[in-house]
Design a protein around this nucleic acid. Structure first.
Lengths: 241, 241
DNA sequence: CGCTCGGTTGACACCAGTCAAACGATGTGG
DNA sequence: CCACATCGTTTGACTGGTGTCAACCGAGCG
């Protein structure tokens, strides 16, 4: 576990870009101040790990900027990505003993981290925060369950189409330009082909073939390795079934 | 939505068999009394539905006895079971708008139901309950994520083995006899072959073939349709990988 | 220039899905 | 009592999608 890149305890929260979307949203200025005192900002480079599977859960965090993956491995060493975390998402396992999955940054990422003990205490004393956390966890559970449908019942084409639709949606507010939702839209994928395969429960070859097929069908355009333009969002959504 | 089989408002909670395991565990007698006043017991027959996918979420519930399934469907009508609920588990979507999955009883089931509005209010006023609910939801999220690994990365044999291992574990305390965990153990499956297939993201034929294979390999014994004896728990756990 | 790395493409194998038939337990009506 | 239908399950034959293995491509870099 490496040293935390701490910064002086100024009130970062007031200028925080996810202030109104994260679990802190319902707290008043005074409470924010208290929370600010126990939290620290940290920047994580792509590929760097924030939490390790099986470790004691000593940290929790809010995602401020960037994308991270939560993943676990089978006994044979195959990876399965359990979920992706975007800005305003919450990371970690409060009130738990061990972290049940690894967390790794996919892009340049900024998080707001707390010692778990501090955070646990704070949330016990501030039901508003605990309540927000509960709502968020319930939402995350719903999203995860929808992902099960994808893994259990969809074929490769439907999986990739679903992935592109969801990624476009979740990345859109970051670009923030008001793009008509049925027109072409370009996104930069935060994941490599291998990582997409791990998310979808496929192999890299199958993912690659599906990309090529969609390109040939005129649904998408693939410029660089990470750059994808969705040409026909509606048809793509249809293929996601 | 049918009428609730309500009973006079005696204090059922005091005699509740899941009193110490459910989300009510941390409440004191006075709080239990208040909760008791807004809850109702209800018995559900196998096959009967408690919540409908897409409905307004008006009910939440604790499972007291029996097994239920949470499920959703693809556009093509294939079913995917998202999870199973056992005694002491919590059902429903507090603080949400619509129920994101259907809930149906698999066995004769007893639940303790609340109007969502009542429950939401109660949990806001009693942080102890909200906290238990949060812990439980976090645990459920972890369990669901482990299930994703099964759906995304395991083959049919590993899936069925995992299913039998988990079902044996979760059904064991109900039988309550102290069986040595490495000896033979008989359980009555709460699911049909088709439902097992829906849980594991397989077809009924594949499930059936895997049952036959495990029987021939001497790992299990299949007496009736629902009765399975695990002969070699350790080997079974190994196949679950 | 050659190396590495991520991605693409091809050939092939195999697991699980599909379709179809048969089985066995249960129930119904004559 | 038997004939027959029904339902969940099992078994068989075949297909096809996806995994596996391997070769190749193209960009970046020393």
């Amino acid at each position: 576990m490496q040293a935390v890149q701490s910064e002086p305890a100024l009130n970062f929260c007031q200028a925080c870009t996810v202030r109104n979307r994260s679990i802190c949203a319902d707290l008043d200025d005074q409470e924010i101040c208290l929370l600010n005192a126990i939290g620290r900002r940290k920047t994580i480079a792509p590929g760097e790990q924030l939490l390790w599977e099986g470790d004691d859960a000593v940290l929790v965090a809010n995602v401020i900027e960037g994308v991270l993956k939560l993943s676990t491995q089978t006994a044979e060493g195959k990876e399965q990505i359990l979920g992706l975390a975007y800005p305003s998402d919450f990371l970690g396992r409060p009130f738990g003993q061990t972290t049940p999955y690894g967390v790794e940054a996919l892009t340049e990422t900024q998080v707001c981290i707390f010692q778990r003990a501090d955070f646990d205490r704070f949330s016990r004393e501030h039901p508003k925060l605990a309540h927000k956390l509960l709502e968020r966890t319930l939402t995350e559970l719903d999203r995860t369950r929808r992902w099960m449908l994808l893994l259990g019942r969809m074929n490769a084409e439907q999986k990739l189409a679903s992935f592109l639709v969801e990624t476009t949606e979740r990345l859109a507010p970051a670009n923030c330009s008001f793009v008509p939702s049925d027109g072409p839209q370009t996104i930069e994928l935060p994941l490599s082909r291998q990582q997409i395969a791990d998310v979808l429960g496929l192999t890299i070859e199958t993912v690659s073939r599906q990309f090529t097929k969609m390109k040939n069908d005129g649904l998408i355009d693939v410029s660089g390795r990470r750059e994808v333009t969705v040409l026909r969002p509606k048809e793509l959504a249809e293929r996601a079934s």
